[in-house]
């Protein structure tokens, strides 16, 4: 089947998923306790003023109408206006999206670049010192909470050695060096758990593949061991690794919130926390929809990448 056909089919199948994401984002807050209008109007507001605010925000209409209105505007690129600041939600998200995306990308890239080779080499020399060291460290990676790792890096690398800034964010437009310099500690903090996760999955997947007949064939062909391991075996072990990277990106969204707080990065995670505390519905909904869509898009890419790594998958 043509690649374009598969792409189209899979993309169409994503639409209902996005609809469900939007519905959940919408309903979640409607059923949460606390009335934003009362909060907005202040303690001494009279019922008439509250009703006026309610009508202005469209909150007096039936739920179904509110949802459809919201969906309709969203399709036109309008996520609504913040109840608190009065700014458009899209503008708020646009301001904050940079640091979050930057930390996410550096974390995933760094985790893959470090985690995959560790897992592969651990499997290749199963039971050797690297294998034992890597598996022991990965347990630590899972066990220690993210904020603790963050403070550890700040103490060691910033305060003791003065290598990196303690906190803050510099946009890419100020120069790549400065940008990466500020992202180093947040990346190191967030990646530890992903390196552990990816290394473990890569190791398990590789152990299975390395015992397959075609690996023996590759050796019988007189190929150098690095080609046998990294070309023949790794490509066959790729599908589970790619899946876990995809899941990793989804989990990252939660991890980012903590890391942004520790390193004082003005990202989406902080925006969510602030909006939840202020019951700023439109902003929370908007961020959930953006995160949800990003996650769905990543999943789609992961699915499509399977047939790139394993040609047998696209046949079915």
């Amino acid at each position: 089947m043509a690649v374009a056909g598969v792409l189209l089919k899979r993309s169409v199948s994503v639409i209902p998923v996005l609809g469900v994401v939007a519905l959940i984002a919408f309903m979640l807050l409607r059923f949460a306790s606390g009335d934003p209008v009362a909060q907005l109007a202040g303690d001494n507001a009279d019922p008439a003023a509250i009703a006026a605010i309610r009508a202005r925000l469209g909150l007096d209409q039936p739920l179904a109408m509110q949802f459809l209105n919201w969906l309709w505007r969203m399709l036109h690129g309008d996520l609504g206006t913040s109840i608190v600041s009065g700014q458009p939600v899209t503008a708020l998200i646009a301001q904050r999206v940079g640091p979050t995306v930057a930390v996410s990308i550096t974390t995933i890239v760094f985790s893959v670049v470090v985690g995959v080779p560790i897992g592969v080499l651990a499997a290749w020399r199963r039971g050797g010192w690297l294998d034992r060291f890597a598996m022991w460290t990965s347990v630590t990676g899972f066990a220690v909470p993210t904020f603790a790792i963050g403070y550890f890096w700040i103490y060691l690398l910033s305060m003791q050695f003065g290598l990196f800034p303690v906190q803050g964010y510099v946009p890419l437009s100020d120069g790549l060096g400065l940008f990466l310099w500020h992202l180093t500690l947040p990346t190191l903090t967030l990646s530890l758990v992903y390196i552990a996760l990816i290394a473990r999955v890569a190791r398990t997947s590789m152990l299975e593949v390395l015992s397959e007949d075609f690996v023996r064939t590759a050796r019988a062909k007189g190929l150098p061991e690095r080609i046998v391991v990294f070309k023949h075996a790794l490509r066959n072990a790729a599908v589970p690794i790619v899946s876990i990277v995809g899941i990793g990106i989804a989990l990252l969204i939660g991890g980012v919130v903590v890391t942004e707080s520790v390193f004082n990065l003005p990202g989406l995670g902080r925006l969510v926390v602030d909006s939840v505390l202020a019951r700023d519905y439109p902003v929370i909904q908007g961020v959930i929809v953006v995160f949800g869509s990003a996650y769905v898009a990543i999943n789609l890419l992961v699915d499509l990448s399977y047939s790139f790594f394993d040609p047998r998958i696209s046949q079915q």
Binding site: E212, D213, F214, T217, A218, H232, R235, D310, P311, R312
Partner: peptide, 10 residues
């Protein structure tokens, strides 16, 4: 086993 002796993804 010619089924398994060749690399399935190449």
């Amino acid at each position: 086993e010619p089924m398994t002796a060749l690399n399935p993804v190449m």
